[in-house]
Design a protein around this nucleic acid. Structure first.
Lengths: 333, 333
DNA sequence: CATCCTCGTGAAAACGATTACACCGACGAT
DNA sequence: ATCGTCGGTGTAATCGTTTTCACGAGGATG
């Protein structure tokens, strides 16, 4: 593969001149044309590795995603990739598979590759490596999940308004015994959603007792199904369930179907994360939609700001309620 | 950030020695310990960019995926990522979004980054850039979609056995008027699935007339829905539909539901690609399952073989039929 | 005792770009 | 005519590694 020296020779100039022409530094008509002609004839493409070594900028961003096969994160990754590309950056993706040690492994690798910045939607709360990243000076932005003790801006959705609206929605439809399926206790996201939902319900004098709070071991369908089973076996089962992750909702739906229960007649069901699928289920599920693509874009923007040294701040975008038919017929039909 | 020179000074040796210790080239107990101690104390990590420049190996693979948000490709990407990581490679992902020009753009970028090898599940048939990749000497492996005129091994699933079995399955259940929803004509994958299905049906004396072959403009739910609408408006609608991509099946299901038709009573439905969702639909859909994760692994293995200079060949893994309830009750219940 | 390897080590040349610095010619001003 | 300036260019240093080559010490061998 041709290198800059070959181009220089062919154009009869020095490598410095070639470099300058290519970077638009000192454009002079005549020499410029000769250089560009040589570039064209040789099919020369600058070696990004060498450039990165010299300039200390790789033009690559890292993205650690907690579970790529979870549709919410897929969309998030897609949005990040799109934003990165349109701003001239490549994206190195690492899938943590919800395993903290694999996440740490990956972060190490990415740092060794000298990526220009790192986006992390952290699996677990393991923050030792993340603190190391901050210490190393590599720009870091947290995505979707905040991590206590790590000094980095976090881009995520704020469920307060949506959950408040949901509480009203459920109350208006006469649901008095709501339940919630959450991620394992200690997960900031799960804890927060639970707290917000509870206070929102309280405003309508609807309690959310602990027996109707079900924690799953993981964010998978089986976990959701298990919790739903527990709910249905209660002496007084709930009449509405909020699953705080889309995969868990899927499992919950399975259990309802297996028992021949109907949504919304026998049980209202609401899903956190409005992945396209839930518009195609029967019935379509009422959902709390996070502005996924905007989150991705905002995260990249924030990261670039940090890379350029601006004092970047956390971003909180509002989630919103998307009422469908799974809680009962809304007023409008 | 500490570099190899700092380590050398601290350990009282030359940089060459440090390098050798770190790469396990000439291990000598005493010097070795001093070096490792220095490495540890300084928290030294080798700069991969410099290493890549010198060795002409980046340790990164590129993956161009035609549509990351399509669950089949998500799983494929996930499998590839997993395989790459476990073999010590990082993965730079590019999402072509089914746009050939964006794909070309990305391939260019990846070549500039001097990735060690490239995996492409090509959007469209634009092969000019792919031929350039081959010419440049960068190891290339095609994934899921073969591209005529490009001399590179292709890793994909073979639907012959599954489609043959499906034809028998449908025949046994008394379906006489099958239909198929395919990608736009000219797409190798779509054409092939159509041809295989047709000959498989022929063996049971079941014809597949052109009026029951519906092409969609894209691989999206709306396209599937549109085609299904056309089928249902035929004077003699089909009694079974095979959607050759999971997203199209989703749209087809929507149209059935909108018309109040029931699966499998009024219409049998089969989906190509057994993404987890279809086990959770009502009823669970009979599917043709491609060995997605194996495909990903095989693709990475094949690519590595090419990187190491072995004469790597195409891989064809059999897809299989997963009968569920969407074509009628199978014998076993 | 001389010679030949072997082994560990260091000095220095790559890898392919960017960029600080020096230089040189032309041109405008004095 | 002389000097200063300025724009364009080339030379060479630099980024952080790996690796070739040469060297010197030491052990084995004759």
């Amino acid at each position: 593969m041709a290198n800059i020296k070959d181009v220089a020779e062919r154009a009869g100039v020095s490598v410095a001149t070639v470099s300058r022409v290519l970077n638009g530094h000192s454009p002079v008509a005549e020499t410029r044309d000769r250089v560009l002609a040589a570039v064209h004839e040789l099919g020369y493409r600058p070696n990004n590795v060498a450039r990165a070594l010299r300039t200390a900028r790789t033009g690559a961003l890292g993205l650690i995603i907690s579970d790529l096969t979870n549709p919410f994160f897929t969309e998030l990754a897609d949005a990040v990739e799109d934003a990165a590309r349109s701003l001239g950056y490549s994206l190195v993706i690492g899938n943590a598979g919800e395993r903290p040690e694999q996440q740490d492994d990956y972060i190490r690798t990415l740092l060794d590759r000298r990526i220009d910045g790192l986006l992390v939607s952290s699996a677990g709360t393991g923050s030792a490596m993340l603190r190391e990243v901050v210490a190393s000076g590599t720009p870091l932005v947290l995505l979707d999940r905040s991590v206590p003790g790590v000094d980095a801006p976090c881009v995520r959705a704020d469920g307060r308004a949506a959950l408040t609206e949901l509480a009203g929605h459920l109350a208006a439809l006469g649901r008095r015994r709501p339940a919630i399926i959450v991620a394992p206790a200690g997960t900031p996201t799960g804890d927060e959603r639970l707290a917000l939902f509870r206070t929102a319900l309280a405003r309508h004098d609807i309690p959310l007792p602990d027996e109707r709070v079900g924690a799953t071991p993981d964010l998978q369908p089986t976990g959701g199904r298990q919790v739903m089973r527990g709910f249905l076996d209660l002496p007084e089962p709930p009449d509405a369930v909020l699953a705080t992750d889309n995969l868990m909702a899927l499992g919950a739906l399975d259990e309802l179907r297996a028992r021949g229960l109907r949504v919304p007649d026998d049980m209202a069901l609401v899903v956190y994360d409005d992945v396209p699928w839930f518009a195609h289920t029967d019935p379509p599920l009422t959902a709390i939609a996070q502005p996924t693509r905007e989150l991705g874009r905002a995260a990249v923007r924030t990261l670039l700001a940090r890379i350029e040294g601006s004092p970047a701040e956390s971003v909180l975008l509002p989630a919103r309620l998307v009422p469908r038919r799974s809680c009962g017929e809304p007023a409008g039909g």
